[in-house]
Nucleic acid binder design. Sequence first.
DNA 1: AAAGAGCACAACCGCACCCGA
DNA 2: TTCGGGTGCGGTTGTGCTCTT
Length: 283
Amino acid sequence: MGCRPLDHKPKKKHRKGLWSPDEDQKLKNYIMMYGHGCWSSVPTNAGLQRNGKSCRLRWINYLRPGLKRGMFSMQEEETILTLHQILGNKWSQIARHLPGRTDNEIKNHWHSYLKKRVAKKAETEARIKDECANNQSLMVEALPPVDSISQNSTAESFENKDGLILETDHSWGAQKNNLPKVLFTEWLALDQFHGQEPVNPGTEVDLKSTNIDQYNIPNVNDDGLLHSLFLNEGPFEMQSHDLFVDDMIRSQSPFSFQDPNSDSGLINYFPREFDLFCDDIYM
DNA sequence: AAAGAGCACAACCGCACCCGA
DNA sequence: TTCGGGTGCGGTTGTGCTCTT
């Protein structure tokens, strides 16, 4: 796109296979100096016998500055698992939430390790569920209505829409009057939201009873950011929560939370952190 | 010590989409 | 409107290393 095709270019036989340190150096030097511009012209200009596609891949997955190498942390793995549950095999989208990791790296890690872990977990859960059913004890149930949650209730299980059993801890209910407020200050996927009632900046919305799709998110504020306040009065119904996180991830934008313990001090969060944040509160 | 199985990672392939001519 | 090149993405394969027998 925007590249002039290299007319009458003789068909070169492109090198394949592993990259030599010399090739890496040539590619790196060239891109650091001139940028990649049009990938198809990179190999010629950089003096490489590769095709543009191969150069692009090598740069993105290996040479690009800022790449994190080595083991995935527990937090990264949890993020991958959470996002994979929501997004499926959208590796590039998942990679956007893991700075320094490439889609290829995440994909490989999934196939070689996480996939098995998930399968094992599902198997264990199925077995537990089975055993519980046999004992006629109701271990798996839908999330109860907010009012029915005991102030002193602790961990319990429920099943989300994918049939995955989630552990929740409602002991936070004891602090109901001190619930965190969530303030979203940026929302890129505005065109996803249509409805009659626009949400004005600062409007408080009870998310648990809210179908977010019905809101038409309004203009941005003076400071260029959108301010819509969602006041969480209780646990989200899982569907709403999933839908919500999904939308946030689709928006691919950073957004802010109001610090639960203060009225000021907004902190930028990315969707994965939002998810973890919710986990801290609700799980 | 040798063979082969398993694993991790790099790289390729094919397809879909975008955009300019 | 159509066509073709460029790009991005996900699936798959290839390769080398480590572990087990």
